[in-house]
C-alpha cells in the first residue's frame, strides 16, 4: 500500500517568501502522525496543499499514491479535514451542512442523512442538528468541524489544531474520539501547539520550522535526544565548580554549583539521568563529598521542541540578519513568514 501522505521536496512560495522549503515527509497508512511547529512554521500551508486550497510551487505531494493536483478528485475523496478556521456554510442547519458535504463526496442523500445523524451523535451535538452554525457555542463549533470531516468516512483525517482554545473536557473527549478512529484504521495527521497532545496521541511527530522539517521521530525518541539534569545536595558549605568539573567523568555536559546555608548543591547535565546518577554519586563520594540527597529532572518534550525550533531560529536569524545587511528587509521577511500559516 502507498503511504497515506508522501511529499518529496515540496515547495510553496509566496513571492520571495518560501512557506514550504523542500519538505519531504511520509506518513504511513494507519499512523497517528503529529505535526509540531511554531506559528508560521508552514503546518497549515502543508495541509492546505494536500486538500487543494494551496497550489504547490514545486515538488510532489501524494495522498494514498494519488497526486494532489493530477488526481485531485481521488486524493480529496480520501481526506476529511477539520481546519483551524470556522469555515462552515451559515445558510443551513448543521445537519444539512453535513448532508451537503457528504453529497459532494458522492454519498446519496438518504445515506448522507443517516451518516450526518451518526457523526452528530458521535461528536455529541445531535440535539443541535437543526441549529445553524452561528448559534452553536465555541466548543460545539469545534465538534461540528470534526463531524464534517468524519461524515465522508475518510481514510485520512486531518486535524489542524483541533483543540486550540477548547476546554479541558472537550479536549479529552476529542482525544478519546480520535484515538478510537485511529484504532479503527483511520490515518490521522494532527497539527498542534500542545506538546502534551502530541506526546499522548502520536505514533510519530515531525517538527517543522520556517517551512522546513527539523526532525521526524517518535515522542520517546525525541525525549531521548534531550539532556537530564541531576541535582545533588552535599553536606559541605561551599564547593567550587571547577573542582567538581575535574572530579566527575566525561558524561557531564555542564556543571554548576550553588551554596545553600551549610550545604551546597551541584547540578550536572547529562544525556541519561537514570543510568548516569550512580556514576555521578560514586565519583562525588570518591572525591570525599557527603551526599545529602539527589534529584533527577528529565527533559520534557516541550523543552526539546523549544530547543530544536530555537536552534533553527538562530540559523534563520543569522541569515535574516545577513539579508537585512544587504537590503534592510530581514525583519519584514520574518514578519511576513508569521502570517503564512
Amino acid at each position: 500500500m502507498p503511504p497515506a501522505i508522501e511529499t518529496v521536496d515540496l515547495v510553496k512560495e509566496y513571492g520571495d517568501l518560501r512557506a514550504l522549503q523542500e519538505l519531504s515527509l511520509t506518513v504511513e497508512e494507519g499512523e497517528f502522525f503529529g505535526l509540531l511547529g511554531p506559528n508560521g512554521a508552514g503546518k497549515t500551508t502543508f495541509i492546505n496543499t494536500l486538500v487543494g486550497l494551496v497550489r504547490k510551487t514545486g515538488g510532489e505531494a501524494r495522498v494514498f499514491g494519488q497526486d494532489v493536483e493530477d488526481d485531485y478528485r481521488q486524493a480529496r475523496d480520501a481526506i476529511g479535514l477539520a481546519p483551524q478556521e470556522f469555515n462552515v456554510d451559515r445558510f443551513f442547519p448543521i445537519k444539512e451542512v453535513l448532508i451537503h458535504k457528504a453529497g459532494y463526496h458522492g454519498i446519496p442523500k438518504d445515506e448522507a442523512a443517516d451518516r450526518a445523524d451518526e457523526v452528530l451523535k458521535r461528536v455529541g451535538i445531535y440535539d443541535k442538528r437543526d441549529e445553524r452554525f452561528d448559534w452553536l457555542s465555541g466548543g460545539m463549533k469545534r465538534r461540528l468541524l470534526l463531524a464534517r470531516a468524519l461524515v465522508t468516512d475518510p481514510d485520512l483525517l486531518i486535524l489542524d489544531e483541533p483543540t486550540a482554545g477548547v476546554d479541558v473536557q472537550l479536549r479529552h473527549d476529542l482525544w478519546e474520539l480520535v484515538t478510537e478512529l485511529n484504532e479503527e484504521g483511520t490515518t490521522i495527521l494532527l497539527t498542534t501547539h500542545y506538546i502534551e497532545e502530541a506526546e499522548r496521541l502520536c505514533d510519530r511527530v515531525a517538527i517543522m520550522n520556517e517551512g522546513r522539517k527539523v526532525t521526524v521521530a517518535t515522542p520517546d525518541e525525541l525525549k531521548q535526544r534531550g539532556t537530564d539534569t541531576i541535582s545533588v545536595r552535599l553536606e559541605s558549605p561551599s564547593v567550587a565548580t571547577r573542582t567538581v568539573e575535574n572530579e566527575v567523568g566525561v558524561y557531564a555536559h555542564d556543571v554548576s554549583t550553588t551554596a545553600a546555608g551549610d550545604r551546597s548543591e551541584v547540578q550536572v547535565r547529562v544525556d541519561d539521568g537514570g543510568s548516569t546518577a550512580p556514576k555521578l554519586l560514586h565519583d562525588l563520594e570518591e572525591a570525599g563529598y557527603e551526599i545529602a540527597d539527589l534529584e533527577i529532572s528529565r527533559t520534557s518534550l516541550e523543552e526539546i521542541f523549544v530547543d530544536l525550533t530555537r536552534s533553527e531560529d538562530r540559523t534563520v536569524t543569522r541569515s535574516s540578519a545577513a539579508s537585512a545587511d544587504d537590503d534592510g528587509s530581514g525583519d519584514e521577511q520574518e514578519r511576513e513568514q508569521e502570517g503564512v500559516a
Binding site: 481526506i79 478556521e85 469555515n87 462552515v88 451542512v97
Partner: peptide, 14 residues
Amino acid sequence: WNEYIHETLTSPLS
C-alpha cells in the same frame, strides 16, 4: 468571504 466555499473546493467534484 466566509471561506465555506472550501467545503466544495476540498471535495472530489470536478
